[in-house]
């Protein structure tokens, strides 16, 4: 049973980690907690559904289309709403993200209806890959873990070994210095939003088969992802991954050994605990950002 628990933790944790990564990418770049993240993922997942089911494209094209859409969604969100904010403060930004969340939520309800839909991916959540006495591993389980690892590796390479990544990290640390070194910081922030949105969309596609696709699909995963991000520190990308995995583990152990009904309070409990004990998360930075 413990093997099964570990597998479940890993799968849930991978998805939380992706959502946490998406949040941290934006938080690091702009210090904005993007509460529209979940709805952006949900909306992108609907695009996959549309391309896959309504238009009948093969999965590869649907996926490419979705990721492209997600990138544009993030980029345009930054361009149209975040960049326009004059002399913004944190509260203002939070209101903007909440507003955008409501817009997307309403749009999805109006355009796609609020029925719960199912759609099939190449990796099914009912197709069993390995079955032993102690555990069951489905295609979806394995795919989630592998895709999460790919995304993380991709982000690592992007941030540490490309010019764009260098520009992103430089802008995160010191916007003014990035500017006078010739980095167009506005555009870089837009790209950061786009990349974050892509990561979120991938998480959405992984969540959809398990949770069924409807406009409220990402509410629960987003809270969990946010908890994971807070746990690992909003400022650290490895922190987001470890926070996600840790949350997945704690949640599943709690669900099995303590109470299945109260499984979802674990995320809130962790947010509270972290805020009490170590407000900046487990993997806080060494250097304090100068304002």
């Amino acid at each position: 049973m413990i093997t099964q628990l570990l597998i479940n933790s890993l799968v849930a944790g991978s998805i939380y980690a992706l959502i946490a990564l998406a949040m941290n990418l934006i938080y690091k770049a702009s210090e904005i907690p993007n509460f529209a993240q979940g709805e952006m993922s949900m909306f992108s997942t609907y695009i996959t559904f549309l391309l896959l089911t309504t238009f009948g494209y093969p999965f590869s094209i649907a996926l490419t289309g979705t990721l492209l859409f997600a990138f544009l969604l993030g980029f345009i969100f930054e361009f149209l709403f975040i960049r326009r904010a004059k002399e913004p403060n944190l509260l203002g930004f939070i209101i903007i993200t909440l507003g955008f969340q409501l817009v997307l939520f309403g749009l999805a309800g109006w355009k796609f209806g609020s029925d719960q839909r199912t759609f099939s991916l190449p990796f099914s959540e009912t197709e069993i890959l390995i079955r032993t006495e102690s555990f069951v591993l489905t295609e979806h389980n394995l795919a989630s873990i592998i895709i999460a690892i790919f995304v993380m590796a991709g982000l690592y390479i992007l941030l540490n070994h490309t010019k764009l990544g260098l520009a992103m990290r430089a802008s995160q640390q010191n916007v003014k210095a990035a500017k006078f070194n010739g980095i167009p910081t506005d555009r870089i922030l837009g790209i950061s939003f786009g990349i974050s949105s892509v990561v979120g969309a991938i998480a959405g596609i992984l969540v959809a088969p398990v949770a069924t696709l409807d406009p409220t699909m990402m509410w629960d995963p987003l809270i969990k992802g946010f908890a994971a991000a807070v746990l690992g520190s909003l400022e650290s990308l490895p922190g987001a991954v470890i926070g996600g995995l840790l949350l997945g583990l704690v949640e599943n152990l709690f669900g099995y050994y303590v109470s299945l009904e109260f499984k979802s309070i674990v995320a809130f409990g962790i947010i509270m605990l972290v805020l009490f004990v170590r407000p900046s998360g487990l993997f806080q930075k060494h250097y304090i950002r100068k304002v």
């Binding site: 990290r169 430089a170 250097y287």
Partner: peptide, 28 residues
């Protein structure tokens, strides 16, 4: 991009980038 570079008051190096990466940002 027109060819003006700036060395600010208080240096403002990128503290969490390596020396090499700082120089590469200069060549962005």
């Amino acid at each position: 991009s027109l060819g003006i570079a700036y060395v600010p008051e208080g240096r403002e190096v990128f503290e969490e980038l390596t020396v090499r990466e700082n120089l590469m940002v200069g060549a962005y």
